[in-house]
Design a protein around this nucleic acid. Sequence first.
DNA 1: TTGAAAGCGCTAACAA
DNA 2: TTGTTAGCGCTTTCAA
Lengths: 332, 332
Amino acid sequence: MRRKTIKDVAQEAGVSIGTVSAVLNRRDSVRLVTRKRVLKIMDSLNYRPVEAARRRLGSPREKTLGLVVKEIHNPYFADIIVGAQEEARKHDFRLLVMSSEQVFSREVDAVRVLVAKDIDGLIINPLLELGTLSSHFQDLEANNIPFVMIEGLSGDVSTASVVDIDNERGAFDATMHLLEAGHTELVHLAGPKYSQHSSERSAGVLRAAPGARIVHAGATLEDGFNAVRDQLKGCSFTALVCYNDLVAIGAMRQLMDQGLLVPKDVSIVGFDDIDVASYLGVPLTTVRIPKREMGRQAAAIAIEQIHSTEDSKSRRILLDAELIVRSSTRKR
Amino acid sequence: MRRKTIKDVAQEAGVSIGTVSAVLNRRDSVRLVTRKRVLKIMDSLNYRPVEAARRRLGSPREKTLGLVVKEIHNPYFADIIVGAQEEARKHDFRLLVMSSEQVFSREVDAVRVLVAKDIDGLIINPLLELGTLSSHFQDLEANNIPFVMIEGLSGDVSTASVVDIDNERGAFDATMHLLEAGHTELVHLAGPKYSQHSSERSAGVLRAAPGARIVHAGATLEDGFNAVRDQLKGCSFTALVCYNDLVAIGAMRQLMDQGLLVPKDVSIVGFDDIDVASYLGVPLTTVRIPKREMGRQAAAIAIEQIHSTEDSKSRRILLDAELIVRSSTRKR
DNA sequence: TTGAAAGCGCTAACAA
DNA sequence: TTGTTAGCGCTTTCAA
């Protein structure tokens, strides 16, 4: 069924579209009876104006940035969103957030929808999809919509701007910290496959400790909990390097359930430094990512590219990740 | 400076707008040289098509729901968003998320922007603003855009649909649990002012324990930490009823820093049951809110109202909050 | 107080 | 292969 338009309302009410428009815009040039009649028809027809048609096409609109994250349900992204939003506001931009929930087709869809909503720029934490540089990014380029990636794609041929952190280095530092503390039986709880961050972090762990055992856990509390319970059953180890803090916290919980003490029996390092990490009963040693700063910089770059007339060259920013030693690790 | 249009490009390139349109839509009817010239002009003019004009006005578009939360940086909202998104997807709706970050003017602005982006329905967790039913909600009604509130406003005169939980009851249960465990020196760490949930929870605490001391903490880890450190200094108490889990976790950390043990010295109850609550060193006793379910129901109602032709009556759903007893509370 | 008509930026059909 | 033109749903003059 066709969407009702101002014409339908006008016809049904026996007035012209001009009158309906006047009612819509609360102009006081309409006789009360007429207004009432029109309003009633609007209601009965379930009429909703097409907003795009209201503002004269091409008239100045609110500037907006789109932000597509992989999973909204992760404190890591919450910080990135907040950072991006802060920077956006500074420049009078609004931020529209969508989540792909780790599904590639939804990421493509989200980008399409945001473009349809006429965003001026896009920040995206893309899913790692092997093969071609996906067409949704090409669309962005074709439409002259600047976009910034948070977490660069590996085969990243494109000209896209990227804001990222040195994962390899961070994971290397974390592992070295454990090695220097005398740990020899190391297990690495790796993140999701198809995550660029995960493979970079695994690489960092292996560079420091080529013999480390790698176990694929995931990215959530439950993943960490399950990995230790199932995959590490009966396995001997004294230290865990985790993909992120959530996995670390989940792992820690499982260890406690098994009667093991952290850090007495097992040392644990996380990654991200989410807020809660320092509030835990055993404050978590972790690799801090400047999450807000990442969001902020990504937004700043997007906005800069929107404003600049000349074909702004893409920028690549690699922020440092810093090891924060707390209480979940100790000398062996 | 006026936004560049297809006309500008056509003129500059010395072709008709039809040709430019063909290039824009990747039609292969354009000679290579022409295409190249047009593309170059587009680039140099920094031309970006007005998306709203591309899809023939009024043509069927993706259905979208807007969601405005108070603070994106809170696991509680993350769950609501996920629930809403799941339900939305089921009905082939997209979800656009914005955050007011506890600032009323931003909430108003967010609603305006979402309406301008032509959303079909709205879910909102409104800030508690005393006085009139704000005009941004009236606008929604005038434009026939169904909206659902998560957390009802107190003086809620409007016809809006609401999905909420029984906060009073949840807080009452939590407090009774402590009372029955023999606690007499109770402190309530209350949430932010101007939060409906906060005042309802405080009411529940007071109904169970009229003599409870009320301290205004806030909603974050830091707020809980600071409240115990500053406002409870030298104060004697054996149990804490907290506005939410974050405050509880922050409070717990501060108690530990003071050498106090939970639950041996102090029992603590949180609210929300965020994921991490059960993974803590001392798993948190808390009042579980069906967060995803709230998001899901809110989306379901919004979508139902969008589809229904007749003037659907507003719905009010009050979900139960359930006390989950873990290890942070014990008999005195 | 209401109606008629031009025009917003673009696409699509058709003509050249 | 390119140009011309009608219209998408609405607002905004201007005329009646």
